[in-house]
Amino acid sequence: MILYTPMQLELVLEGLEQMKHVSTRKVDVDGVPVLIQDTGPGEGMVVRILSTDPRDYLRTDLYPGAVVELFKCT
């Protein structure tokens, strides 16, 4: 990977060694497969959408970082 940025690389990559792999799991939200990271009881944060339907990527409730309520999931 080549980073092309005027920011100091020490700042950008600081803490890279300490980063832990967060466990994610796949759930379906309204029929859209998404990868979520558990953040608390009954909710999870969207890490990535796994759908192949491009329209799902325009959904504002499923952006990466959005918190979804897991009772909507299957």
């Binding site: 600081e14 890279l16 980063m19 990535r48 491009p54 329209r55 990527y57």
Partner: peptide, 24 residues
Amino acid sequence: GHLVLPPQNKATKYEHIIPQLVAL
């Protein structure tokens, strides 16, 4: 890019932007 950056960075994720452009 292909590496997830440490959380102090605000980042634009290409795996989300690219399918979004297909949808647009």
